[in-house]
Each structure stands twice: as C-alpha cells, then as structure tokens.
C-alpha cells in the first residue's frame, strides 16, 4: 500500500494523504487530476472495482468534496481519491468511460446536489425525485423541514421530543 501511495505521489500532484486504516487511504488531489488518478489506479495498480462515488457538502468552505472509492481485490484494500470542487459552479469531469455504474452515481449526484457531469450518458434523466423543481434537496441550504411542512400535510398535534431528555423524564422522573 505504501508503495502505491508513493507511486501516486510521484505521478500526481497529491495535496494530502490520510491513512485511515492499513487498507484504507484518503488521497486528496486537484480537480483536474482526480480522474487521471482513478484511471491510473484502475489500470496500473489493479483497483478494478468502483465502490462508490460520493459527495460531502462543506458549506462553510464553499466546496463539495467528491470521493472516488476504488477497491483492489488482490490486496483487499481501498483507496479514496478525494477532490474539492467549487460549490457555486459545481462541475466535474465525468468518469462514465471507466465504469458503467458511474453513470448512475453521477445521475444521482446531479439530482441530489446539482453537480454537472458533462458527457455522462443519461445524466439528465430523473433518478429518484421525478420532476423535482426546487433546489437539489441534499444541498445543505435546502430547508427540508420547511419544505415538508409546506408541501405535505403535517398532522396537527404531532410533537417531537429529544430522545435523551424525554426518556430520562419518563423512566427516571425523580433524578
């Protein structure tokens, strides 16, 4: 694993390496180098399986952090290639030519976060939310409670409790 990380560092402009476990590394690279790095891992190092493409929304930093997690069946090890893209102009190079399942991941990201993947097949079709016309719901500026109250019909009288305090009141009222 160390060797592979060294190869990566030699070939690409690696900004940060984080060792999570012996078999899981997070490698941060620039936006333009993410897809070449994934391609390199797939073709040269035997990371043939795309585990997932996922996104973390860092609203405070103004970035989306994309993770391409790939798996090597010989080493039983994962490497995640991370890259930060701008939140306002969220556009990323497509990985549809590497794995076909990337189509669906990119379709989902387009729908849930509004990240554009130019050139990815069927990326514009709706995935889960048929005919969604609001801002993408997994962005953190989307207020889901307000939306639910406006759209659906909340039944009057429904109350929510904080589980910890509520159970404490119910079970141990004297303490």
């Amino acid at each position: 694993m160390e060797k592979i990380i060294q190869h990566l560092q030699g070939a690409f402009d690696v900004k940060a390496v984080k060792k999570q476990r012996n078999d899981l590394y997070f490698v941060t690279v620039g936006k333009d180098q993410a897809i070449p790095a994934v391609t390199y891992l797939r073709d040269a190092e035997g990371f043939s399986h795309l585990v997932m493409i996922t996104v973390a929304d860092w609203m405070e930093k103004g970035v989306f952090e994309l993770n391409y997690i790939v798996h090597n069946y010989q080493l039983h090890a994962d490497i995640s290639i991370c890259t930060n893209i701008d939140r306002e102009e969220a556009t990323m190079h497509s990985a549809h030519h590497l794995w076909e399942q990337a189509w669906t991941y990119q379709r989902e990201l387009k729908e849930m976060y509004g990240i554009e993947f130019p050139g990815s097949p069927r990326v514009d079709e709706s995935f889960n939310l048929e005919g969604w016309d609001n801002i993408p719901p997994m962005r953190r500026e989307f207020d889901t409670l307000k939306y639910a109250n406006e759209t659906f019909f909340p039944r009057p009288g429904r109350v929510s409790h904080d589980p910890a305090t509520y159970m404490k009141q119910k079970l141990y009222p004297n303490e």
Binding site: N128, L129, P137, F142, T144, L145, Y147, A148, F152, F153, P154, R155, R158, S160
Partner: peptide, 19 residues
Amino acid sequence: TINGGMYFDSYNTINRLDK
C-alpha cells in the same frame, strides 16, 4: 402513514396518507 413518523421532515416522504 399517520403523521409522517420519523420521516416527518423528509423532503420526499408524505406525512398523511388520508389526504
């Protein structure tokens, strides 16, 4: 289905079926 349950604030789950 009665009042949304634990999904009461979800953006894609209905709250009351009888509507």
